[in-house]
Design a protein around this nucleic acid. Structure first.
Length: 966
RNA sequence: GCGGGUGUGGUGAAAUUGGUAGACACGCUAGACUUAGGAUCUAGUGCCGCGAGGCAUGGGGGUUCGAGUCCCUCCACCCGCACCA
């Protein structure tokens, strides 16, 4: 009987579905375990083999935990709002909801083929009104909350209003000491005035911010749609434009997001990335008086943020961001034109370009700041390397201590003050904190790191500066001028935002005819006047960004059909936070920080009982594509000299041609024989070819001819009768024709093979190129396992003979039990630590050894099947049933390791001379140094190295090695 | 620019605590069996060398009896950077 994986997998998938074996209950006496995958965006391209890597890893762990007696929640859904569907709609007129549904259907059929244990009853789709009703509801919660800095948590805005009515502006806390009003004044404010104050406190708030505006397209563009200052599509100019936007006040949570990192099990690099993103720094804000020839009043002040107030006497110039509001009023008449030109230049550049720019650029404003301590006049410059969004948008430049400042000073010939003596060599900046300060007024003689605190105190005393904690993180932009996203449940009336009430939710996306932008950069919704204009006012026309729905989806899986609330408190108390979250590092800072923030807000407001969403995070690596190339050559015939045509040459000829310098000039040529004629090839172009019609490196020439019309009459020059393709590792993408559909692999080799092969490729966390060819090794392994249970089909006198069961009820030998228990230990440990590649190889070793021992004993094989269940559930269930088990293997008892079967009585020691292995010797397991030394020294090989000398030392590490030092 | 990651045979990789480098596979070579082979099995396969042996974990340096693993330094490649999700 053969291993008929197609039948087997189909049979069990249907049975499992019919028996609802993956349905998970919210009530159980078992301990809970929550395994979550980052849900996919259902793109039109479908899944390729790179996507399921993490899904397989989480599926294995879920099944493993189930076998170990846990009630495992392992859901799946779709992050189905997003730009690509809208872009597709713009091009084809098809409604995003339709294409999204189609794509989801494709994804689900692909996922189901791989045999995942998802409880589909719990599926969520972020674009489903039944889901986004609750996204809108949570948005309104954010809108109606503020962060109370006294209690360090989110509270209802109603409480703030109540406080303002009695305390006035002191209720706002010290952070907002700039605004000041009494309770009486507050009560006398108009509604608009009150709302403006409240808006500055809400966790979801509206304000003005800059967007990438493309006049020609009449739309706002995403950063990745802007390349070198022009739109990716069409190459139209893009400028920064101020627009009303919604934001989430994630900065209020900066400290808690940092502290929370201590409590979660993320990789150090992931935590580091989040810390860097939050970018907490301690320093000071210092105000400088400005002296400008422009205004006689000299009343302006320039406030800078610095982490190094100790270097205040080393400031040689100031740099303000080109967006800085002071520029207009301080620029001198002579510098007016230069400044304007520079600002126009910077407007066309993205933040990233500005930071990555190596060429130094900038312009002098003509104004000076006055150092409050020594009265020195410090020129104020403008440069793009200072970003408006960070700190105060202005820095004090200390060239002797900061590399960028130093280069800037050099470039513009600004004299450099040395405050760190011999630490500064005049050739490069030295950012040390260890130097003793010189030329530094009252700080002279102090160690820099000690001067930081003293410097700030002095400035606070004099009222020119104050201690300040700064964050690089900015409040998160929360509106998009797009159609395919959650509409905001907000109506604007007389400049006041009015939230819809909960019973008006969901506010459904209206149908549109056109997906193009609305007027003035507004989103497409602005075009539907009958929807926008309501008796209560004008609707918000932006929609929410992709991360809205994904910031809380892990909660909805717990209680997906609840119509009363987004998740019942009892249910979320049971499932609690996600125990294992698997996804790519690309979400390190965006999605993970947003969902951590939302979780903290919902915790503060009492909706859930935990404030970190994900206890453990496992990052899966990317699977890169392995592209294949054919080489299209232009040739002429040498024999009759005139014929010119195209021909596809095998790789070796391309290599020859390249070697001859073919790449550079088109003069290089090679000559070869083809169909009895000599042809001359002068120009070769590599073309991507679909990897699915290439076996390893050999092209299927018939399929190639069928692939595209232009290849129908293709003629080939072969090597050894084969057409060999070139290869290169690239991103896996449709455009390189290097994507492989998991369904094809499941059809050809089976889901079990596919699952195990993906894991066998390498560590889950590592990126690695895909190679379809290697899958055969894993497939052979499963067939070999099968043959431990069934004999092969064969032929007898020309007639096929069915294979027969070969398993027996005989008692296992000690040797067989040793193999089994070694495997139990290895698989259990490797699965627990997500080392699935080594687990797969341990299975291979196990089956190889059992086959060598001719072990067909049920007693042993049965336990191997249970171990295998998380990895290859179909074949495990099939053989489990075949050997006579009535219940499913999915709920079998996990094998228990018994060390007594694996203990050894002796150990083979490596014997090294000076650290180099020369021989091995076997000693009893409890042998001591004194026991082994004489034997080692008497050994022939050791003697030949000693050449009669006494060894200097013999290193003996019990159960490890022996090293003889000469 | 900032931040993160990765470099080991022809290929994917293993080596869990500083202790036999290359397990397990792919590919390749030879052979067996077979009507057939894209089935299965056997043997071989890091590089150089007839051999003894030498050289090998991106390059260079260091610590150690012993380094893929620890330290310093340099190089190469990949990913993210706030409106892709």
């Amino acid at each position: 009987m053969e291993y008929k994986f197609r039948e087997i997998e189909k049979k069990w998938q249907e049975k499992w579905k019919a028996d609802k074996v993956y349905q998970v209950s919210n009530e159980s006496t078992k301990p809970k375990y929550y395994v979550l995958d980052m849900f996919p965006y259902p793109s039109g391209a479908g899944l390729h083999v790179g996507h399921p890597l993490g899904y397989i890893a989480s599926d294995i762990y879920s099944r493993y935990k189930r076998l170990k007696g846990f009630n495992v929640l392992h859901p799946m859904g779709f992050d189905s709002f997003g730009l690509p569907a809208e872009q597709y709609a713009l091009e084809t007129g098809q409604h995003p909801a339709e294409t999204t549904q189609k794509n989801i259907a494709t994804f689900k059929s692909q996922l189901d083929k791989i045999g995942f244990c998802y409880d589909w009853e719990r599926e969520v789709q972020t674009s489903d009104p039944n889901y986004y009703k609750w996204t809108q509801k949570i948005f309104l919660e954010l809108y109606s909350s503020w962060y109370n800095s006294k209690t360090q948590k989110a509270e209802s805005i109603m409480q703030l209003i109540a406080l303002l009515e009695v305390e006035g502006s002191t209720a706002l806390g010290i952070e907002h000491s700039a605004v000041s009003f009494t309770a009486e004044q507050w009560n006398a404010f108009s509604e608009l005035e009150k709302e403006e104050i409240l808006m500055k406190r809400r966790l979801a708030f509206s304000s003005f911010g800059e967007v990438n505006w493309c006049e020609a397209l009449g739309t706002v563009l995403a950063n990745d749609e802007v390349v070198n200052g022009v739109s990716e599509r069409g190459g139209h100019p893009v400028i920064k434009k101020k627009m009303r936007q919604w934001y989430l006040r994630i900065t209020a949570y900066a400290d808690r997001l940092l502290q929370g990192l201590e409590t979660v099990d993320f990789s150090d690099s992931m935590k580091e990335m989040q810390r860097n993103w939050i970018g907490r720094s301690e320093g000071a804000e210092i105000s400088f008086k400005v002296h400008s020839p422009q205004s006689a009043a000299d009343s302006k002040e320039l406030t800078v943020y610095t982490t190094r107030p100790d270097t205040i006497f080393g400031v040689d110039f100031m740099v303000v961001a080109p967006e800085h509001e002071l520029i207009e009023s301080i620029t001198s008449a002579e510098q007016q034109q230069a400044v304007e030109e520079y600002i126009t230049y910077v407007k066309s550049r993205s933040d990233r370009e500005r930071q990555a720019e190596k060429n130094i650029s900038g312009v002098f404003t003509g104004a000076y700041a006055i150092n409050p301590f020594d009265g020195k006049q410090i020129p104020i410059w403008i440069s793009e390397y200072v970003l408006a969004g960070y700190g105060t948008g202005a820095i004090m430049a200390v060239p002797c201590g900061d590399e960028r400042d130093f280069k800037f000073a050099q470039h513009f010939n600004i004299p450099i003050t040395n405050i760190i003596g011999e630490y500064f060599n005049g050739k490069e900046a030295n950012p040390t904190k260890e130097a003793i300060l010189e030329n530094s007024g009252f700080l002279n003689g102090l160690l820099m790191k000690d001067a930081i605190g003293g410097g700030i105190s002095k400035m606070e005393e004099l009222g020119i500066g104050k201690r300040k904690v700064n964050y690089k993180m900015r409040d998160a932009g929360f509106s998009r001028q797009r159609y395919w996203g959650e509409p905001f449940p907000i109506i604007w009336k007389d400049g006041i935002a009015k939230p819809l009430s909960e019973n008006e939710l969901p506010l459904e996306l209206p149908h549109v005819e056109k997906y193009g932008p609305g007027p003035e950069g507004e989103g497409p919704l602005a075009n539907i006047t009958e929807w926008v204009n309501t008796p209560e006012g004008r609707r918000e026309t932006s929609t929410m960004p992709g991360y809205a729905g994904s910031s809380w989806y892990f909660l909805r899986y717990m209680d997906p059909h609840n119509v009363e609330t987004f998740v019942d408190r009892k249910v979320s108390d049971y499932w609690n936070s996600v125990d294992l979250y698997i996804g790519g590092t690309e979400h390190a800072v965006g999605h993970l920080l947003y969902s951590r923030m939302w979780t903290k807000v919902l915790y503060d407001l009492g909706y859930i009982g935990f404030d970190e969403p994900f206890k453990k995070l496992l990052n899966q690596g990317m699977i890169q594509g392995s592209s294949r190339f054919v080489y299209r050559a232009a040739y002429s015939s040498i024999n009759d000299g005139i014929e010119i045509g195209l021909i596809y040459v095998s790789k070796t000829y391309y290599d020859q041609w390249l070697k001859g310098g073919g790449d550079n000039d088109n003069k290089a040529f090679i000559t070869l024989e083809h169909n009895g004629k000599y042809i001359r090839i002068s120009h070769i172009v590599p073309l991507h070819v679909d990897v699915n019609i290439v076996d390893g490196y050999e092209l299927d020439r018939e399929e190639f001819k069928k692939w595209k019309l232009e290849f129908a009459d293709a003629d080939f020059v072969l090597e050894d009768g084969k057409y060999i393709c070139g290869s290169e590792t690239e991103k896996m993408s449709k455009r390189y024709f290097n994507t492989v559909d998991p369904r094809v692999l499941c059809d050809n080799y089976g889901a079990d093979t596919f699952r195990m092969y993906e894991m066998f490729l390498g560590p889950v966390e590592a990126s690695k190129p895909w190679d379809t060819k290697g899958i055969e090794g894993v497939h052979r392994f499963l067939k070999k396992l099968w043959r431990l249970f069934y004999s092969d089909a064969s032929f007898n006198q020309g007639k096929p003979v069915e294979g027969k069961p070969v398993w027996t009820n005989e008692q296992a030998t000690p040797e067989e039990l040793k193999v089994l228990h070694k495997t139990i230990k290895k698989i259990d440990e490797d699965t627990e630590r997500f080392s699935y590649n080594t687990a797969v190889s341990a299975f291979m070793v196990c089956v190889n050894e059992l086959a060598d021992l001719k072990c067909n004993k049920k007693e042993v094989l049965e336990q191997v099947l249970v171990l295998l269940t998380p990895y290859a559930p179909h074949i495990a269930e099939e053989l489990w049933a075949a050997i006579g088990n009535a219940t499913s293997i999915l709920d079998a008892d996990y094998p228990v390791y018994n060390a007594s079967y694996t203990t050894e009585s002796s150990k083979e020691y490596p014997v090294s001379i000076n650290g180099k292995l020369r021989t091995t010797l076997t000693f009893p397991i409890d042998a001591e140094q004194k026991d082994v030394e004489p034997v080692v020294l008497a050994n022939e090989i050791v003697q030949s190295w000693l050449k009669g000398q006494e060894p200097k030392k013999i290193v003996f590490v019990k159960n490890r090695m022996i090293n003889v030092v000469i």
